[in-house]
Design a protein around this nucleic acid. Sequence first.
DNA 1: GTCCATAATTAGAATTATTCTATTTTTGTT
DNA 2: AACAAAAATAGAATAATTCTAATTATGGAC
Lengths: 136, 136
Amino acid sequence: MDGIKILAKERLELHGIKPSMQRMAVMEYLITHRTHPTAEMIFTDLYPEMPTLSKATVYNTLNLLVERGVVRLITIEEKNARYDACMDPHIHFRCRNCGAILDIDVEKHWIPDMPAGMSVDMSETYCIGRCTKCNN
Amino acid sequence: MDGIKILAKERLELHGIKPSMQRMAVMEYLITHRTHPTAEMIFTDLYPEMPTLSKATVYNTLNLLVERGVVRLITIEEKNARYDACMDPHIHFRCRNCGAILDIDVEKHWIPDMPAGMSVDMSETYCIGRCTKCNN
DNA sequence: GTCCATAATTAGAATTATTCTATTTTTGTT
DNA sequence: AACAAAAATAGAATAATTCTAATTATGGAC
């Protein structure tokens, strides 16, 4: 169970981020919760065990993680930004009915041919539809 | 120049939306401005010629248009929702440097194989990188 | 170990996009 | 003209995120 703490620390250091308690807690949370949480959810869940934690720190940390390419920012929902520490190629599906956000594994992210001179760092594909539960 | 008014009206009626002045103005704006505008931009641009226009109406109209599938909602940017009346298959590219949002034409939208029971109504692909200008 | 500079965290205020509410206006029908 | 239903409106309310100014933690030099 402590392997996750080490993993979180390594991931931060690998990207030149100083592993403070708060940053490790956020990183660890994202590694263990593959639920595409919002900043609010992360804060609410961590707060009881870290009563000095501030929402600003959660936002600061998430912004830093996204900037450095440690986690993915998911904008499949208009309202809230969501975060995902899983960097394996996969896309996101949102059920129009129940709101669930699910991972769909893919071999490789799709990047269409780009006009000359344009370079692409990353791509995200979002699908909207009905999930298996809501289709029955 | 009036053909656009007719086109806007047709598009609304085709989707069962009553073509009020305000709705036509928004629809017309989206057809003529392929800039992926925000609700704010649409309001600001229309307001001088329609001084009774309210921001709520712009939002109401955009939400209705998206619900009915008349326009696409683009969430490539965290902050603002953007809207696009072009329904031909294309994806969006955002330049990390200058913020421009550009269209990239594609043959067909990519929808990967889905687990059984899941149905997909639509998909959006967003690429982030550097545009031609910013690469030089 | 203490001193210092720098970086990180914090609480709460500020900002801003969007939605909601209650009212007024418009539209279409008898 | 009278009425009901739908649409538009202004402004208040909400909520996600950022900003600000102050506090706390960290790591190196001595």
